[in-house]
Simulated assay, not measured.
Amino acid sequence: MGNRSKKSQIRGRTFNERTNRIGVHAVGTIFLADFQWLFRPQEVSDLGIDAVVEILDNDEPTGRLIALQIKTGPSYFRKWGDGYALTIEKRHIEYWIKYSIPVYVIIADPERKLFLWQKVERRLCTPTRGGWRIGIPRSNPLNPTAKPFFERPAPRDAQSIARAHFKLDRELIDEISRTGRAAIFVWDEWRNENAWRNLRIYIDGDRSVAADLVLDLDLAADGGLPEIMEKVFPWSRHCYAEETSISAEVKVHVLSVELRNEATAYLQLERFFEAGEPSASLLLRRGEGSS
């Protein structure tokens, strides 16, 4: 009986994971094809953050980000008022409201091609016994008419944008730091289209094995690759390791990428807080020493 129950749980979890992946892929297609923005699924969900979107301006990266929580399946379309209601754990709502970039919830039913959105704001949330309920109107379809509602709240100042990118790439920054070596970033430049695509990242610099991370990017910038690296990976500094042409149309750019001092300081601070707040006695001793 116990084994049968365990197998049922595994099948249920696998089905839910597959359903979630289908939903994330469908939402990503809308942002990539209809909005023409960058869509980056999060392999490790950060308290419900399933994907991060970067707003592009005529295919040029702006560095401005929004975060998405995606719920997939008919069961999430629970009728409430003139739309639907989504119940969310209190800890998630509190985290999202304080998040460094705006967070949106999207309910997705790919079979019916129905996708609706709502921005997470405290004023839109109603407390329930188990958490919070947020209303998602039928009048909020996820299509290009919604672009202004996603663009306006996204941070515009350079400090907020850089902070958001540091948080987004925390895991990548951490892994590069742990190797103690420069990572290798490989870009394809499509000369005739002024486009930079298909980024492959080798975290420990070893290109004899498969890339650790592949990002399906399609970017343009008047300043070329240096401008793209500055906007998409502001925590990095790079130099050319190699440049080769594989055809008349495509040139491959191989970069040696290291962490800026700011990225190292960011990691140290994050690890410090993750280890627990300093004790009151330690803070007191520091205060005595500075007086």
Rank of each mutant, 00 (worst) to 15 (best):
G289W: 04
F166M: 15
T179F: 11
E262W: 02
A26S: 13
R91P: 00
D82W: 07
L267M: 05
T72A: 07
R4D: 09
P127E: 12
I107D: 00
A26Q: 14
W196R: 02
Q69H: 15
R18C: 09
R4Q: 11
E54H: 00
I107E: 00
C125T: 04
P74L: 06
K6W: 08
G28S: 07
Q69Y: 11
R64Y: 10
R237F: 05
T62F: 04
N194W: 03
N58H: 15
E60V: 08
N20H: 11
K167F: 15
D157L: 14
A51P: 02
L282Q: 05
S208Y: 01
S256H: 08
I97V: 13
G289E: 14
D212T: 03
K113Q: 14
W235D: 07
G81C: 09
A146V: 13
A248D: 12
I161R: 15
E111A: 12
A164V: 05
A195C: 13
L114C: 08
N3A: 13
R271E: 07
V214M: 06
L255A: 00
R129A: 11
E262R: 08
D222C: 03
G180C: 04
P234M: 08
V103L: 03
Y76W: 14
I49Y: 02
C239H: 06
S279E: 12
A220P: 01
T128F: 03
S160K: 15
P141M: 05
Y202A: 02
G289F: 07
S256M: 06
G180P: 04
R64P: 13
A280T: 09
I70L: 02
S256D: 06
I93G: 01
L142T: 04
W235F: 15
D169Q: 09
V24L: 07
D169T: 04
D59Q: 11
V105I: 13
L172D: 01
R123Y: 10
N3M: 14
P141Q: 10
Q69M: 03
V186I: 11
V252F: 05
D212Y: 00
E189G: 01
P148W: 06
L56D: 11
I173T: 00
